[in-house]
Simulated scan of single mutants.
Amino acid sequence: MKILVTGGAGFIGANLCRALAERHDVIVLDDLSTGRPANLGPVDVDLQVGSVLDPSVLRRACRGVAAIVHLAAVPSVPRSLEDPRRSHDTNVTGTVAVLDAARDVGAHVVLASSSSVYGRNPVLPKAEGLVCRPSSPYAVSKLAAESYAAAYRTSFGLETIAFRFFNVFGPLQAPDHAYAAVIPAFASAALRGLPLTVHGDGTQTRDFTYVDTVVRVLAQAVTGRTTSETPVNLAFGTRTSLNDLVRLLEEELGHRLKVRYRPPRRGDVQHSQACPDTLRSLFPAISPVPLRPGLRRTLSWLRNTVAMPDQEVLA
C-alpha cells in the first residue's frame, strides 16, 4: 500500500512511519516547523518538505496514495494562545485541504484530533458523545478538523476516522523547547538534576498513552481501512495525577526530585480520562503499554539519544 503521512517527521508521525515502512511505501509530507528529518533516521520513506497549505505540494504528495494519515498540525495549547490564527490556518484550513486532496485520489483518511476538545466539560470519563466545551484556540481547531472529516464522510462519502489523542508520550518526543509535553519535560529535567515545574497543585490528572500503543492503533486503522461516524478516543481510561507522575519518576530513578509549583496555565483542563469503549470495540486485539514500562523506555531513550542542554525545562 502507498501511504501518505502528513507531519510524518514529528514525534508520533516518525514512530508511525517506522512501523508502516516495514510493509508499505510511505511518503512523508512535513514542513519541518516542529518535525525533524533525524526522527526518521534510516527509515525508508520518501520525505517531501512542504506544507499541506501549499496546493501543488499536497497534490504531488498524494499521487497514487491509498491512505492518508493526517498528523500535520501546530500543536500545543500555549502555542495557540500566542498565535490563534496560525493554529486555525494549519489545523483547520490544512485539514480541509487534505480532505479535498483525499477526495481527488479516493484515499482513506485517518485524522489526529485531541482530548482537548472536551475542554471544560467536567464529566469523567470522557465519552465521545459528551458535549465539547473547548477552552483554547488549539482545542477549537481540533474540534473543527474532526467535524470537517465527519462532514466530508456524510457529504461526499469519504472514508474517514478521527482519533482523539490523550497525552501521548515516548521516544522521539522533544523535551527541550518551551512547549514540551509534561512527560519529556519532567523526565529531561529529572535526568539533569533540575527542578520539575508543575503548573497548578499537581492534582490535575491525565490519561497518558504510550506512543507504541498509538502507532499500533493507527497502523491497524490504515491497513484495515477502518472508518467511524464519530470520533474515537485513543486512550484506555487510565488516570494519573502529575504528583503521582513525579513519584513514578522518583521510583524509576531511585532518588527524590525537587518540584516547584507555579500558577495554572490558561487553557489547561484539570482532569482528563478517556472512555475506551469505542476504541476497544474497533480494535479488540490491541492492549495498551502500561505507564510504568512506557516511562522506563522513555527514560532510556532520553539517556541514550538526547543532548541535555543546561537550562530549565518547563512542563
Rank of each mutant, 00 (worst) to 15 (best):
L4D: 03
V5P: 01
G7V: 05
G10M: 14
F11Q: 07
I12P: 00
G13L: 11
C17Y: 09
A21V: 04
D25A: 13
D25P: 00
V26C: 05
I27S: 06
V28P: 01
D30Y: 08
P37R: 12
N39Y: 10
G41S: 13
G41H: 04
V43D: 06
V45Y: 04
L47A: 06
L53T: 02
V57Q: 13
V57W: 03
R60A: 15
I68V: 15
L71W: 12
A72V: 07
S76Y: 08
R79N: 08
S80V: 08
S80M: 09
S80P: 00
S80K: 07
L81H: 11
E82T: 04
P84R: 10
H88N: 01
V92Y: 11
T93S: 08
V96E: 15
L99S: 02
L99P: 00
V105E: 09
V117N: 03
N121C: 07
V123L: 14
L124W: 12
A127C: 12
A127L: 09
A127E: 13
G129T: 09
L130T: 04
C132K: 13
R133W: 15
R133Y: 13
P134E: 11
S136F: 10
V140M: 08
V140N: 02
S141L: 07
A144G: 00
A150V: 06
Y152V: 02
F156K: 06
F163N: 03
R164Q: 07
F165N: 02
V168N: 10
V168Q: 09
G170I: 07
G170P: 01
A174I: 08
P175N: 07
H177N: 15
Y179I: 01
Y179D: 12
A180T: 14
A185M: 10
F186V: 04
S188Q: 08
V198N: 04
H199K: 02
Q204F: 05
T205E: 07
R206K: 14
V211T: 06
D212Y: 02
T213Y: 11
A219D: 09
V222F: 10
T223N: 09
L234M: 08
T238D: 10
R239F: 03
L248N: 01
R256S: 13
R260Q: 12
R260A: 11
Y261M: 08
R265L: 15
D268E: 15
D268A: 13
H271G: 00
A274L: 09
P276M: 13
D277M: 07
T278I: 11
T278V: 14
R280Y: 06
S281V: 02
L282I: 07
F283W: 11
F283L: 10
P288A: 15
V289R: 12
L291T: 03
R292V: 13
R292P: 00
P293K: 06
G294Q: 12
L295E: 07
L299W: 13
S300R: 15
W301V: 03
L302A: 05
R303C: 05
R303P: 00
T305I: 01
V306T: 04
M308T: 01
V313Y: 09
L314E: 10
L314P: 00
A315H: 06
